[in-house]
Amino acid sequence: MKAVISVTGKDGVGIVAKVSVKCAEFGANIIDISQTVLDGYFAMILIAEVSNLTMTFGDFVDAMTALGKESGLQIHTMHEDIFNSMHKI
């Protein structure tokens, strides 16, 4: 199962590192990253394989949200099925 993690906020040094370190720590394997900075605004979409998390998916969502709060970023973690159900026939 895959999760889509979106990260947005003011650009700064080490955002990708912070998020990817947490993913590694929790056993989320990053399989796709798309990232850009527009007018100093950072936006990243990260897709991760989360079948082997060291915690429940709910706790992973909370941990990533908390990381966002600590870092002044907005981090949303969502199961991939919501995108499939909305955008695929």
Binding site: K2, V4, S6, I31, D32, S34, I45, I47, E80, F83, N84, M86, H87, K88
Partner: peptide, 10 residues
Amino acid sequence: MSIVTRSDIL
């Protein structure tokens, strides 16, 4: 993107 497109996600 492997599952759906970036614009779909956004």
